[in-house]
């Protein structure tokens, strides 16, 4: 059992939990994830470690409430316990290297995951440009924190309610158009966003890393649910990833696989909403 020591509502659909997990906090690195099982009947879901505090033995997870499992997790209060937490899993982000100029892009909830990685890029001596995007202003995450660590900082919203009116790829495209020297692009967000970021950087062959949120069961390479085609090769996101070369990823296939259980997810969600008395 893992105690929730603090909880924060980041916006109408996103929550943050800080959980006591000293053994994980001691060794985890940016880019790694944990598998969470909220309670005894719960599902195992992968969530990227958004932050950690080694001294206090804490890790932070940030998640968007998209279905039953994330809503259940979001219903937990401070002082309550998460049943299971496994990690740190996956390979860490390659942040220990100086690339030159790194563009870190976070879309929606992805910004929370990008933040610790971007910070590590900055600490490694890179010039850091961040692009923080969301559908609308209310859904922008980690705006303040991102700005603090960035050498250049951009905000985009699909509806123009904050920053640039448009997508993260508009800003990225402009940077590339203006012949800015970019040595690495790191993007986390919805699959279509990561796909278009990869497309944007492809012409100039700018190295692009994306963090994939495949369906997983065990998270240790045992079930193969998270398999993804990368450069025509079958890879397991849990052990070979979760980060891959965006130019090599078959995003179309990934989107199909992410939808595999959609009808079941909808059913579970509906049932959850009914159990909560019709409120979400």
């Amino acid at each position: 059992m893992y105690k929730i020591v603090s909880k924060k509502v980041l916006n109408s659909v996103t929550k943050m939990l800080v959980v006591r997990a000293p053994e994980i906090a001691k060794v985890c690195k940016p880019g790694q994830f944990v598998i969470v099982r909220a309670n005894e009947t719960g599902e195992r879901i992968p969530l990227t470690i958004a932050d950690f505090n080694r001294e206090r033995g804490l890790i932070t997870i940030v998640f968007q409430e998209v279905g039953k499992s994330t809503k259940l997790l979001g219903s937990f209060k401070r002082g309550e316990y998460v049943q299971d937490l496994v990690g740190p899993l996956g390979k860490p982000s390659p942040t220990d290297k100086k690339y030159g100029t790194v563009v870190a892009i976070g879309g929606g909830c992805g910004s929370a995951i990008v933040y610790p990685v971007a910070r590590a890029f900055k600490e490694a001596g890179n010039y850091l440009i961040t692009i923080n995007g969301a559908r609308t202003m209310e859904l922008l995450l980690y705006r303040k924190q991102m700005r603090e660590i960035s050498d250049e900082f951009y905000v985009t919203t699909d509806d123009g309610s904050c920053g640039v009116h448009g997508f993260v790829t508009n800003v990225l495209g402009d940077l590339i158009q203006n012949d800015r020297k970019i040595d690495l692009v790191f993007a986390v967000g919805p699959v279509p966003m990561m796909k278009f970021v990869s497309k944007t950087t492809e012409a100039k062959q700018i190295p692009t890393l994306v963090s994939l949120n495949s369906i997983m069961v065990d998270g240790t390479g045992m079930c193969g649910a998270c398999r993804v085609s990368v450069g025509g090769q079958m890879k397991f996101a849990c052990v070979d990833g979760p980060e891959f070369d965006g130019h090599q990823v078959d995003f179309q296939e990934l989107m199909g696989r992410l939808n595999a259980y959609r009808t079941y997810e909808a059913e579970a969600d509906k049932r959850w909403i009914n159990q909560q008395g019709g409120e979400t």
């Binding site: 009947t41 719960g42 599902e43 195992r44 039953k68 499992s69 259940l72 069961v217 595999a260 259980y261 079941y264 997810e265 059913e267 579970a268 049932r271």
Partner: peptide, 9 residues
């Protein structure tokens, strides 16, 4: 399922 949250297809 749905008593347990994990689905199987």
């Amino acid at each position: 399922f749905p008593e347990y949250d994990t689905p199987v297809k």
